[in-house]
Design a protein around this nucleic acid. Structure first.
Lengths: 143, 143
DNA sequence: GTAATTGCAAATTATTTGCATTGCC
DNA sequence: GGCAATGCAAATAATTTGCAATTAC
């Protein structure tokens, strides 16, 4: 399987866009991150590697990462948009703690098949879905 | 079952807030709507009934409607926040056509119980969830 | 060479807030 | 009467855009 860097480079060529050091730096920082960065957070991390990069470039590059299928938007309902690596990762849903923002990735066959069933009942051809379960995690409910 | 107007009035009394004509007008317009209004759209509709109402009051009142359990936020991922009647309505998820934006409200016991099960397995106390199934509806797939 | 890209700052959009005035209870 | 609510305009936050200079191809 190709690595994300290759995928991105190929995407840029296909779209007749240019491979630049800024775009590569942003992708690298994005890939290194374990958290779900907001554009602002990503921007700050990128600046550690290359202080000359501007915010706008981060926003613009994030869009390209989404278009190329490398990044996905995650909705933590905390007011900021967040992103995660989508390319090469299995589909998953999210279990989010409303107190500490902990995020657990889940994949449940029963849910997935039930979703397929409902879609079929409505004659929908399912292309994708988003599911977020919000609650209080065990750590936070103890406090 | 109480109607939303009563519920809202009781909520205001309980919170020691005041019943005002603006709040009532906003609630009425909200209830009359069949679509999922954004705050801006709601504001414009409210102005038709009472041109003196300001945007800020609409935003402030929407918050109260959410706190009182009358309105829920719906995330259509179109950049604007949208609201729907929550009070008196059964919980439901959304089946959204990517071509015509048709929105079908669904409720599936198998999905709901599977969600509970997953949350329990992770020691989460579930408070709420959002699920959006995106696909192509039967009308659009014929074309 | 030339068209895409960049950083910057200004613009835009969505929402919130400060404050003087108004109005409910 | 007193304190919450309102409208307005200004403030904030998040994101986008115009533009002149730069850079990839």
């Amino acid at each position: 399987m190709k690595n994300p860097q290759e995928v991105f480079a190929e995407f840029l060529v296909k779209e007749r866009l240019k491979v630049t050091s800024q775009r590569n730096t942003i992708l690298d920082v994005f890939l290194e991150s374990k958290e779900h960065y907001s554009p602002e957070e990503l921007y700050l991390k990128v600046k550690e590697k290359d202080p000359s990069v501007g915010q706008a470039t981060v926003y613009r590059t994030l869009k390209l990462l989404i278009d190329s299928g490398i990044a996905d938007v995650v909705d933590f309902a905390d007011g900021v948009s967040r992103y995660e690596l989508g390319y090469g990762k299995e589909h998953h849903d999210h279990l989010i703690c409303e107190k500490c923002n902990k995020n657990i990735e889940i994949l449940d066959a029963a849910i997935e098949s039930a979703q397929e069933k409902v879609a079929k009942a409505h004659n929908f051809q399912l292309t994708r879905h988003k599911m977020y379960l919000y609650g209080i995690c065990s750590d936070c409910s103890k406090k």
